[in-house]
Nucleic acid binder design. Structure first.
Lengths: 255, 255
DNA sequence: CGGCGCATTGAGGGCGGTCAATTGGTGTGG
DNA sequence: CCACACCAATTGACCGCCCTCAATGCGCCG
């Protein structure tokens, strides 16, 4: 099914909305003005999508990539059971399907968890970046590698740790990613998804997710009311989670 | 700690040992003779490593990549508990740390499960490939993306499925990857690792791994004696595992 | 006010973990 | 050729984390 777009904005010559992405890339390496222009110039249009809509389905073969500008999305697959299992979360500044450029066919689906705004980048434009700017290409490659590193970290969490530790780790990761995107205020961030959805990312039921969240609250580690999540004790939370942000690769170095 | 090499062979002008890699890449796209030469020319030496040795440790910053020519290796991390948790398996033809090229710092360790032979490729050579041959660069990028797709599939297995289904899926995956590398005979392949090690990849203890393996044997799905694994009923095993090899991206298409 | 979605709480059960002992195959040394 | 060590595979007993099923609260919005 094609994207259900409420509104489409043509163009994209300016960098409006690309700040979270550029912030993240600049945490990793110096980005020239020409490279920022190449990125914003690659955007052919922006799209708005309502909450709980599929952006891509398994086995789709897209001819363009999507960059998330606003809202949250999730990677998921359907098991024989039926209900979707979350395999990844995207926040503003994350590419949704950059991998589809070398990969072609989607091996999982992607849907919106909230209303979203997306920037669309044709594969053709990425081809040109690869031909003309190997350095920027390397930074994009790197971004997909961090995506893989996140999956591996989730695998570690889900496969080998208790629910309490896993949830602590997920919270540390999301807070760090949101901070990198410039979307936190002091110790507080907005988490516009349900406990059930976060739990599914950890292979937990909503019931047990809730019990773990309450435990973290009771231990004075977090406050979570509505969509507003505050980290009350970052150091202790990191210790419980064994959280080391190195896998997010936020260190500046020539690439 | 540096690689403990038993023997080092300088050179690599020929393609000896690269067959499993080239087989896999050619399943995905046409590879020109020049591209094959570029790959084999990028190898600066080969190295032999005994079993149960670390090739790379967490936080290492390698200046070269390693391609596995013979033997099996595993990605792992150490949790606070102490014992290693397997996050990925490499078989001949797999890059061990291609990601280290854009990424620099290792976010996990890699060790040999068996005696191994490795081809070493300097990052400098990959730089040149990226500058001069965007198509080959895209195929290498693709290979790291498949690596990420495998992690995500493991996440699905480990987080959301029973041990029996997860083990079936792992067996289907490994058999398919070994077949692609040209390392199967009819329905039989060699699995030179212990049940304990395979189980760790699924977050299972050796005790439960053994019970699951026996169950699969008893149901007439597999035969597994020593290192020799035979698939007795591929279709039924795939059905139990919900195995769809699409995520391994073995479809030929222009990239 | 009534409906809906999400959070919350309770009771009971099962998958897989933990601990521990035994078997069996292989290699090594006497 | 056998005694022994060692490691992986195997088996048994028991337990706990998390699932399942179910009901209740509760805020939000029409």
């Amino acid at each position: 099914m094609p994207v259900q777009a409420a509104r489409i904005h043509i163009g994209g010559g300016d960098r409006v909305g690309l700040e979270p992405l550029i912030r993240r890339l600049e945490r990793r390496d110096v980005l020239s003005a020409a490279e920022k222009d190449a990125l914003s110039g690659a955007v052919c249009r922006t799209v708005e999508v309502a909450a709980d809509r599929d952006i891509l389905r398994e086995h789709d073969v897209p001819s363009e990539c999507r960059l998330l500008l606003e809202g949250w999305t999730s990677r998921y697959t359907l098991l024989a059971g039926g209900q979707p299992q979350i395999l990844g979360l995207q926040i503003p500044g994350d590419f949704i399907d950059l991998q589809s450029f070398p990969r072609r066919r989607m091996d999982h689906a992607i849907s919106t968890l909230t209303p979203c705004r997306l920037a669309v980048i044709p594969h053709r434009a990425l081809h040109e970046i690869m031909d003309r700017n190997p350095h920027l290409a390397r930074l994009l490659w790197l971004d997909t590698l961090v995506d893989g590193a996140i999956s591996r970290r989730w695998l570690l969490n889900v496969g080998h740790r208790r629910a309490r530790e896993a949830m602590s780790h997920l919270i540390c990761e999301l807070f760090t990613r949101l901070r990198t995107a410039g979307m936190t205020k002091a110790r507080t961030c907005q988490v516009p998804v349900t406990q059930t959805e976060l739990g599914s990312a950890l292979g937990l039921t909503s019931v047990h997710t809730n019990r773990v969240v309450q435990e973290l609250r009771h231990d004075g580690l977090i406050t979570w009311r509505g969509t507003s999540l505050t980290i009350e004790d970052w150091n202790r939370l990191c210790r419980i989670a064994e959280f080391d942000p190195a896998y997010l690769d936020l260190e500046r170095a020539p690439r």
